[in-house]
Write a protein that binds this DNA or RNA. Structure first.
Lengths: 158, 158
DNA sequence: GATATTAATGAAAATGGTTTCTATTAACAA
DNA sequence: TTGTTAATAGAAACCATTTTCATTAATATC
């Protein structure tokens, strides 16, 4: 492993989350989280594999999938499905710089855009809806998914 | 085909949509739409296949997939993904009795519930948001997906 | 109503993203 | 430093969905 043990000293933000769950801090996990935080979102498992592979060719695709599953389950990463058959992953909010957002998906070319400019009304209504649903269905809401589908600028021209 | 040609006389509601697109009216298509409209939503391709198979064993799974794809593309059917890997299909609003709705998905047992009690505020805000997004991103919105994830009543108890 | 055209179908095979299996490696507690 | 055991890599399996191709049947035309 081409990293000194000392570099753990400046522990990354997810260090505690891992230790708290009894999970080990491994190089693949660190590298995968690194790729996710450096690259702008919507990455497929293969995208991540290729990026990781450039630096650590020994890390296999299986580990990418396993690690992503773990990260999703830990709540550090969100998994999305935009209509093509591969799943997409992106870092959850919490690490600096990433905010909660929804997606605009072009049904023609597959382009995905982030939508972060929530208006206050919107956030409040969403909370209200979630509260209402929780009560009515006795359903404990932990998350929501909002996506808008349509045609992006370029695809409209055709 | 065990149906007289006369029965087309009381043309089903989708008749015009098919003819308008130049698509043929076939028994498999009729049967599949029949299953979708008789059964309550969230059916997988296999669910539909099994239901169809009981009455018309000659209709194959391939045709189910092909027909569903066509129906989705025509806008008669919506395709969903609830986290397990199989796609789910349900009739779009338009045929009597089916209203636009969103979904509550239990991340533990996979149960899916429909949420139809939109408040006026909600519908209006959604329109407003879509209008804003269309303008800001020059994106022509044709559809949206809203799902809430969490734990259903039973799964909370455990 | 009979017939030609060609879209639609069924069965089997292929595809491809994801998961499982198993022997090996490495994180970390002692 | 060493033992325990979680984590990993690579190959094989999995399985929902798609493709291929020969056959069938819906519709337009005669």
């Amino acid at each position: 492993m081409p990293r000194g043990r000392e570099s753990w000293k400046q522990q990354p933000w997810w260090y505690g989350r891992f230790r708290g769950c009894g999970y080990r801090l491994t190089v693949p996990r660190e590298v995968i989280l690194g790729v996710l935080s450096k690259t702008s979102g919507h990455l497929s498992a293969e995208d991540i594999y290729l990026a990781v592979h450039k630096v650590y060719p020994a890390i296999g695709l299986t580990t990418i999938y396993r690690t992503l599953e773990l990260l999703v389950q830990m709540g550090l990463v969100f998994k999305f499905n935009f209509g093509d058959k591969r799943a997409r992953y992106e870092l959850a909010e919490g690490s600096k710089g990433i905010r909660h957002h929804h997606h605009l998906v072009c049904t023609h070319c597959g382009k995905v855009m982030d939508y972060t400019d929530f208006i206050d009304e919107e956030v409040e209504l969403l909370n209200q809806i979630e509260k209402g649903l929780s009560k009515k269905f006795n359903f404990k809401i932990t998350n929501h998914l909002i996506q808008f589908y349509g045609l992006c600028e370029k695809c409209q021209e055709k």
